[in-house]
Design a protein around this nucleic acid. Sequence first.
RNA 1: UGGCACGUAGCUCAGUGGGAGAGCGCCGCCCUGACACGGCGGAGGUCGGCGGUUCGAAACCGCCCGUGCCAACCA
Length: 1000
Amino acid sequence: MSDPTAPNNTEDPLEPLEEQPSEELAKAYDPTEIEARWYPIWNEAGVFGASAADTLEGEQPPYVVMMPPPNVTGTLHNGHALFVTLQDILVRYHRMQGYNTLWLPGVDHAGISTQAVVERELRRHEGLSRHDLGREVFIERVWEWKERNGSRIVEQLKVLGASADWSRERFTLDEQCSRAVRTAFVRLWDEGLIYRGERLINWDPVTRTALSNEEVDHEERAGELWQFAYRCSDDSGEIVVATTRPETMLGDTAVAVNPDDERYAGFVGKALVHPYFPDREFFVIADKHVDREFGTGAVKVTPAHDPNDFAIGERHGLEVINIFELDATLNKNGGPFAGLDRDEARKRVKADLTVRGMARGAEAILHSVSISSRSGETVEPMLSRQYFVSAGPLAEKACAAIDELGQTEIIPAGWKSTWDHFMKNIQDWCISRQLWWGHRIPVFYERAGLESAVREDARRRGEQTVALSALESGADTRELLQIALDSLDEELVRGFSTASIDDLCAGPDGDRYLQEDDVLDTWFSAGLWPFSTLGWPDETDDLRAFYPSAVLETGFDILFFWVARMMMFGCHFMGEAPFRHIFLHAMIRDSQGRKMSKSLGNAIDPLDVIEGITLEDLLIKTRSYPVPESLLPRVLEGLKKDYPDGIPASGADGLRFSLAALAGQGRDVKLSIPRVAGYRAFLNKIWNATRFALMSLGGARPQPLSETKGDLSLADRWILSRLQAASDRVAAGIEGYRFDEAANGIYQFFWNEFCDWYIELVKESLGDSAPEARREAARSVLIEVLDASMRILHPICPFQTEEIWQRLPGRKERWAGADGVDVVFCATAPFPVADDSWRDDDAEREFDFIIRVVTRLRNLRLENNLPPNQRIPAILCSESHSIRHSVTELSDSICRLARLESLAVHSNDGYEIPQQAAVGTDPDFIVVLPLEGLIDLDAERTRLAKELATAQKQLDGFEKKLGNPSYVERAPANVVAETRERAQRCMESIAASKASLARL
RNA sequence: UGGCACGUAGCUCAGUGGGAGAGCGCCGCCCUGACACGGCGGAGGUCGGCGGUUCGAAACCGCCCGUGCCAACCA
């Protein structure tokens, strides 16, 4: 298909395509080859770049999406694939609409995960811990790791086609983001919205750091409610308590009962004996928190290791005894059990109390256990000094932005109530982490100030404090700092921290100043993402042009981790919510609805879907996952059964289309490979339809539609009208975040309308026997529909559409210069806007008749067991002039589609049905196949009887309605009229069927 | 315990007040001029149950059953 009229543009990167036309396309669809080619071409051509100036000068409205930064340790999983697909659809769609589109990408430093990965490597390869290296060297190592591996996830996003502006890529720990973090911290500190305080926090004994509440998962587990007795010190009796954690009794400082509980009325105020610490003050107290029905109705109180007990302790002024080291082994307060791990301690405490005769039985219980989402270990509540953000005032602003200012809308709206519940009950946010990799908390202590504060503290208390002893014994500065921070009042600490942070961070004077050891929660920097990436705190052009963004698209699982924090920080620091829409997509699950996880062995690697994988490799890969031994055989058998031929390569386009089609709102996305294969078949269909079209053009450059408008056939007008509906449907789907609608819209149009009907019909018009004008018109419609279809599909399947679009003759010239843009890509061509002048209701109605006629005829043929190749004559009778007219116009095509020899058209009384004939009825017409000697009488009788029964059932329904006076009276007139009409036509069908039956 | 979803064909789901739909799977026929990753035709559903509102309910309301998610409690 060498095109002699094409300009000989030697700079065109696509020139090879134009040189090897239909032969090239004649090959089967191969996504791998196509997809490797286009991404660098777009990227280098600057297709993905945004320009602040264009918006600030009023030329182009912005459309901005902040990419949720994947973890630097991450490898591509389906969650990434889903968010990239959905966001890229939004971004590409708006880019094609002419918006100044910015999709800002980046990577998260992922504090705990990254540190853990590097520590593991260090241990494995060098047998060292991070403490062996020291903080500075270790952090250097992490940066080295990041330089080596950190771009992997980014490259994988590109494989998916992510059209992000990589020139603006950010890392949460780069200098720009770090400065934003320091600034934000200091402002919040100065405003009193960050404080340092001693609270009961969630301690992860494995990673040895505090966690925020959101980082703790709750899991139902079978446990044991174990009972034991405390003796009264006056030997007047005992009180039995129930617990799931017997070892914490070592930190008990009271037993609480409900004040209204008569059973224990006599005990309140009595002293108890702690079996291991007989000197401990230990009383029975009354507190209404205690549930009389649960357990024994008496609760052991461990203020240091249980949030409720902590609260009780505060109310009653109880002593708080921490019994754990940071790794959850018992400290010296564990008495005889000191040094034991908490699980071992539990066994030993139970055994020992049993020996002492204090055990009082046990019952099984299902209770929820707090698990660290970081390490999977049981979280230990610990009393600890940490930094907190006062979330209340910030949450109020975030809620006001939604409820009062209407700046942001949550979609789907169902999440609003979850949001409200969380935000109204929000707890202060623990932001300090005992890690090294992250934003070190920008709090500095002046040594001189510290020393005087220690002396002041000691003087005030009138005693030799621990800190003072340390100072006097010449402890080094850092040790002194630690001791001082643990023992000084918060006010004193505040007094000598300093706020000239940037200078200090640039080069702190180690002798004079000491910086806080802890780093900030990863989500602190993530919370600043919508503006730290644009240059905040500086008033940059980017910030002015691109804040706030259009939509924040992410999974609902990080609504509170991330979205809420961005809303709070955005409203607080920028004075305006960071996005207009919050769109929350569902979770990806396997085809049975289970969460995908490597340890279940059901995780599908998106790259395997894109590139394909053999069964053999899939099995090898799954064996490397941490699947429990007991499960593994079943998992492998399942894979062999589900993927006997492995997973076929569907390309990024195939995966993207599948994810879009499956992403119905408010539902989990159940990813099934057969389903993906089905959508991949759609892309193959497109490929082949294009091959047909290009072949039919035979190298000719089609005329624009405007030239052929006068020669359009019914089918031409029909498909052009349907095209408008399709572009509307897809646009509405994308704009309404109904990606399934968008995908189905183009799928149905292209396959069921364009391929199944239009292309089949147009073959007639393209043939040698058709008049030249007819052929010209058909070609221009073919190319127009393909062009528009590729542009409609482009946001979902960018690679294949670009490949095909570039090959359509005359396309680039046609769209170059539109909107003053030099368009050379499908990616930057305008998204088709439905044009009402091409809508044609008459054509749609008439063509619908053609579809019904052909379907009826095909049905008749098959039900009468006619050989497929046997050409036979047919007759159509209808009272409707327009049906007769349309059918006559397209009778050649109908003959082809229904494999007829001829098709005669009559009015109902213009034709007498012969004795032996198959008759198909429709409310608007009947079709007849005269089958003298051919008809399968039994088959035809069965068919007619069935047809009759269906029509009769329908008619019964209509007549029942029409026989109901209140229906006729109350239902809208047009509804009643329509029912009457349909009943009438039903009766005619029935009459025709009966007559046919009688004839046989 | 509370909140929110969901329950429609074998499977996955669309359909929010007037004719029960799609994809895959299944059955039958066909390599019909791009496509067997294809074409054509077909079978298959008391729309979870009960009650209510309405001339009319898969859809709206109430209750029940079932499933899932989130949150709280959990001595």
